[in-house]
Write a protein that binds this DNA or RNA. Sequence first.
RNA 1: GGGCCGGUAGCUCAGUUUGGCAGAGCGUCUGGCUUUUAACCAGAUGGCCGCGUGUUCAAAUCGCGCCCGGCCCGCCA
Length: 548
Amino acid sequence: MTASDIDPYEVLADSDRAFWADAVADAIEAREPEEPIVIKGGVSPSGIPHIGHVNEILRSYYVAAVLRDRGHEVRQVFTADDRDRLRKLPRQLADLEGNIVGLGEVDAGALGRNLGRPYTDIPDPFGASDSYGDHFTELLRQSVEELGIEVEFVSNTELYESGAFDDVIRHVLANQETARDVLSAHQDKIDEEYVPFFAICQSCGQLTEAITGLDLDADEVSYACTDIETGDETIAGCGHEGTVTIREGKLPWRFEWPAQWKVLDVDFEPFGKDHAEGSWPSGVDVARDVVDVEPPVPMVYEWFTLDGEALSSSSGHVVRVDEVLDLLEPEVLRYFFVKEPLKQRDFSIESIDQLVDEFDRFEATYFGEQGTIDSEHAFVEQAYPFVVDEIQEDRVRIPYTFAAVLGMTNDEQLREEIARKQGHITDDTPAWAVEGALGRVERARNWARRTGNEFDYELKRGEMPDVDFDDETTAALDELADFVAEGHDGEAIQSEIYETAKRHDIDMGAFFSAGYRLFFDDDEGPQLGTFLGKLDREFVVDRLRRER
RNA sequence: GGGCCGGUAGCUCAGUUUGGCAGAGCGUCUGGCUUUUAACCAGAUGGCCGCGUGUUCAAAUCGCGCCCGGCCCGCCA
């Protein structure tokens, strides 16, 4: 058999399911797997976890959720591939609170001496966790938790140390010739010297590739610590020669992946498109012909861009999960990853309002509101219940950009009042729903601030900005103050602004600017009269009179 | 060079599996409203479905060729 009989694209293409996770679940069920069904993902804890990593976790989550919904027992496992070697230093790190720390702020030299060593053998630069690997795995764990998803983390290093991999390693080493034959069909450089095992050098701690001898009865491997080529760079070996047990090293990735399938009894694994044509086909062959396990049901997902460009940890073009969750609700981020896995999309911070709007419509469609997405009903019906933690029909969503307008004031009571006036919240809205709806205001405020967009105005309530108006403007503002003091609604105030400006022969734009300066310390802002009409009158009057 | 995935309105995306009138939201324009700017309501606007070609009564959808973007075909993961 060859890899061609499990095409990682076929699982989705060959189904008439409206929701891709159903198609995957069908493929898994067709194999009649033993319970619990195991869904796996994995990543190297090489640096700050970002939303790219969420792709793998959420794709798995939806498949797990569908299977559970069908009555299966499911384990969603995520391997921290933490015995991988540190190949280059990241430019940025993050402490356990998520604060970004430049490489220069930690002991970069100390970290640099760990190139070539497994992540779990490198000290945590922040000194809190057991190792570098544990530190970044912990950050990822936090992100997953914030998304409201339960995942069982498995440390790859732990699998080696506990001996869980012993049988597979022995088997691979005992069948080296087969291993070489199988892998050489996928990789050119597999020669007679190739041994599918890296030993951890007892002297310098690096994972070294030059295996000089094997004693399979004693479970021992001899090595020489030579230079290692990684990409363009060379990590110098220390030259030490020694012998370690099979627990003190690791399998190369192409063998390790199938070994994980076997040891963890994996039934499904999603992976990025980068794996689709290299790792996957070789993994299938290695699994069947070397490791002796049937590969899991595969699924490829497309990468997405961030603001139009590829995510890149090394260049720092990434966004962390906690940052994103400052801008939108977890269910919106979950929604982003419930969509068609093979479509290339952009995650745009700038136009995050569009994503939130789309989510709102998605949700409204589920509850059968009019004017929503007709063509998607079957998909929405199936997918929505897994996107939210709880299906609650009387939940309220304030339109995102309107939430941004509400965010111009810090006064939470005022925010609620305006939302009620606009009809987004009614007397029938339960208290929990009010709280949930207004929670979006703070996020939209963060968004406006972060992007510095047209919603980024802040009512200067505490303290009056420095102003310097001419006599006509001063007189006009006083008149406007008197008008407001009489008690008029926002619309009337807006008209009066124009009237007042005309009476005093002040340029319209200049007069508005004066108002924006007074309230926002800015040249422009929201529709002024309407906005002032929603604030408490005493404050508006006093401010127009420049008294506070 | 070979392979894989994607390309639909100005923007963000449905629709392609199973061929049957080209869709939504945002944006834009007009009006509601003596009024630069958010929000709200009503209406309008918007497309060579990447390009070409074949099959068909009929193609965004199926076949073939090409173009563009990303990825793989070295190592590593």
